[in-house]
């Protein structure tokens, strides 16, 4: 039976832990709101980009001179995986889900006789993959200590991947990130980046419902060569934003759970404390009474 003093100390310590977790939950909630509005603001550009891609991609896809970003190198030997994780922990299974999915994909690809390279985005993912599969890691990017991510960050990643593609370092590129569904649900998702999947939306239509035939200036191929890297950066940007929103959502629910657990623990501990206190009083009373009887 622990003494009353140690029980009191434990209760105090659990109480301060609870204060911290509930504060972290509040912070995560407000960051989540910001991340959500950032993701929302990015949507118009992505939508319009997708529309252009759809009409352009369809007209060029078949040609033999189509750019590498669209059709890949034609081979399927070396895969580059880009797992996107957070820079901080305490977000439930948010980071380890990505780590695990990356490992599974890598193992599956290797079992099929392909080579895997990993470019880790985010500190947690890098740490995990360094332990698990250090030999495949070719680089890492981290935004630790930064307030928010901008489009320039996504462009950086896209440039790096493009440079690697042109240097012939990989054939297929896949981004693995947590897709934000709701505060309590983030789904680890793989999204192929190169060769670029041509979006499957119907070509833009005006109110009349008729399909529009665009003229291109300059020609389709020059246009596509410019549009593709931009589209890639946009896809990465979207993944980064979804992942950021997911991170805060995951942290929010993790911290909510922690706060509740701390509450339960405080309840249990104070019950033990009260019982011990009463036992003490009873014992003292018995001692006094039996002392008096002995006289």
């Amino acid at each position: 039976m622990p003494s009353l003093k140690t029980l009191r100390n434990r209760i105090a310590s659990v109480k301060s832990t609870q204060k911290i977790t509930s504060a972290m939950k509040m912070v995560a909630a407000s960051k989540l709101r910001r991340a959500q509005s950032q993701a929302e603001a990015a949507r118009p550009y992505a939508e319009r980009m997708e529309r252009m891609m759809a009409s352009l991609g369809a007209s060029v896809a078949g040609s033999p001179t189509a750019p590498k970003l669209l059709v890949g190198t034609g081979a399927d030997k070396v895969h580059l995986l880009i797992p996107v994780t957070a820079d901080r922990g305490l977000a439930g299974a948010f980071n380890s889900n990505i780590g695990r999915l990356t490992r599974n994909i890598a193992q599956r690809l290797e079992a099929e006789g392909r080579t895997v390279k990993i470019l880790a985005v985010g500190r947690k993912g890098r740490d995990y993959l360094k332990r698990e599969m250090a030999s495949r890691l070719v680089g890492d990017i981290s935004y630790a200590g930064r307030k928010s991510i901008g489009f320039a960050d996504a462009e950086d990643i896209a440039l790096r991947a493009t440079a690697m593609l042109h240097a012939g370092e990989f054939d297929v590129c896949t981004v693995i990130y947590n897709k934000y569904v709701s505060v309590i649900a983030q789904i680890p998702t793989e999204m192929r980046l190169i060769p670029a999947p041509v979006p499957d939306v119907a070509p833009a239509t005006e109110a009349s419902g008729a399909q529009i035939l665009y003229e291109y200036e300059p020609d389709e191929e020059t246009m596509l060569a410019r549009l593709l890297p931009q589209n890639m950066a946009i896809q990465i940007y979207r993944a980064l934003l979804e992942s950021a929103a997911g991170e805060h959502g995951a942290r929010m629910s993790a911290m909510d759970n922690a706060t509740r657990n701390a509450g339960d623990m405080i309840k249990r501990l104070s019950q033990t404390y009260n019982r011990a206190r009463q036992a003490n009083i009873t014992r003292e009373l018995i001692e006094i009474i039996s002392g008096a009887e002995a006289l």
Binding site: A41, Y45, F151, A233, I234
Partner: peptide, 8 residues
């Protein structure tokens, strides 16, 4: 409409 990746 002028749109940047970050917002409208």
């Amino acid at each position: 409409e002028i749109v940047s990746p970050e917002k409208l």
